[in-house]
Design a binder for these strands. Structure first.
Lengths: 254, 254
DNA sequence: GCAAAAGTGTTCCGTATACACCCATGA
DNA sequence: TCATGGGTGTATACGGAACACTTTTGC
């Protein structure tokens, strides 16, 4: 049995480079910490006709000539205006049932102006500074939502978020540098500890944590102290990227 | 600017279920151990016109209604006739440059009878018993090739294999059960040790290895001994899946 | 003076590493 | 009798976990 599949592509005389590729999408799970909770960035999903606002993960079909990593950076930038955030691809989701819900498909067809069949999505993960995010206007409103209070989400976005949360725990273990990408350049021991506590959802012993910090070659004490706090002021630390990389390359040899 | 993209799909009156989806493929990196070396299964890639045989990873476009995991199982089964092997999705490869080599694309168009543009591939990994593999005839010849002697490969298959080798090391650490899926149901300490040695590409201390084995609740000594070997006969061990799962669930709680 | 967080050391336990010799078997 | 792998124990090092009190500062 022979099978034929013919694709005809048309566009308004514009370059092929800017064409969307309506078979593969990239979704970004942007995690951040706000009000002592792990939060995920959701964007508004405007439903034609109805007034109710629903939410979804920031994501998009990829462009014809765009690498997956590039697409992820683009989406992250559109949703937050942040640049050079470390993004990690963590899984592809490709069940044919992803597009089983007709409302979801209808919405996507309206949004993309394309006929949508099946879509395989590649999911990315990043840790972002919540305070710094200002999405592009045309991207609509974004909302940092605690992971304990996720609303109804389209497609399999809930599953994607669950996987992302598992993933970030193992990721921070193997590549702790991403934590410092997330923190301000000077930070206190408390800030660092809270970050780990929220990511791992458990409390850490203060003394053991200090001991650990002192044993890590890439955590440098500075002379600066917190000011104007109503308690003993804490010392600021900084992340030494060079020492970190040196340590890593040693580990990899052994 | 509006963009249009029209897809027309035709087929010989057969059901849509069996249609290939020419935008996403799945490639399987099947690793095994032969002659004390880590090997990867490659399949013949017949080039129309020329007589030379080249090789590639077993892989295929996915079918319209097929999940990614299903596609991976199908490909594994076609290439080895093995069933119920644990496969792990480890990364999507989606650079537009994947299809930069025209020969590769030409070959794929011939093989699939489809017009091929860009393809995003999702890569899977498994550990297989080399001796048990007998591919389906129509799949062509397969060859277990030592990873140190990879031939020229199409697309980015070399990169995919390199990633897979890194991946299997971390995978066996977090999920040692896959090793026992790979070994015969009764195995000696030597067999198990060699398996680890080859995967990690380093030698392990014999005494420490025995000590470790004894400390693991899921490794059970049997009363059986090797026979007809020209040295003291070794004891057989077996893998206790129940004990393994019990141990895992404890770990996850803590 | 009090609330709030900073900072600091010791003990214990389990796991990883290093290391050398005698034993059983078939050829 | 020799070649081959089987099997065993001890000492040391390191990192993680548990645990309580004094210090500093602003209000």
């Amino acid at each position: 049995m022979r099978k034929y599949f013919i694709c005809i592509t048309m566009q308004n005389g514009k370059d092929f480079e800017n064409m969307l590729y309506p078979h593969v999408s990239v979704d970004c799970v942007l995690l951040g910490i706000d009000e002592e909770q792990l939060c995920v960035l959701l964007v508004e999903k405007k439903n034609a006709g109805t007034n109710q606002t629903e939410y979804k993960l920031p994501g998009s079909l990829i462009y014809e000539s765009e690498d997956l990593d590039e697409a992820a950076q683009r989406i992250l930038n559109e949703a937050t205006r942040l640049k050079r955030v470390v993004l990690k691809q963590f899984r592809a989701f490709g069940s044919p049932l992803r597009t089983a819900n007709k409302e979801d498909v209808q919405w996507l067809e309206n949004a993309s102006k394309m006929k949508i069949g099946r879509i395989v999505t590649v999911a990315y993960l990043a840790l972002c500074k919540v305070r710094n995010t200002k999405p592009e206007e045309r991207f609509g409103k974004v909302q940092w939502t605690p992971i304990s209070k996720l609303p109804k989400l389209p497609f399999d976005h809930k599953e994607i978020i669950e996987e992302a949360i598992k993933e970030i725990r193992t990721w921070t273990e193997v590549e702790p540098a991403i934590i410092f990408d997330y923190l301000p350049s000077k930070f206190t021991a408390l800030q660092l500890r809270r970050t780990y506590e929220i990511i791992y959802d458990k409390t850490l012993d203060v003394r053991n944590f200090h001991k650990k910090m002192n044993s890590l070659p890439y955590l440098i004490q500075t002379d600066e102290l917190e000011k104007h706090v109503s308690h003993r002021s804490a010392r600021y630390y900084r992340f030494d990227k060079i020492a970190y990389n040196k340590m890593r390359s040693k580990l990899n040899k052994a």
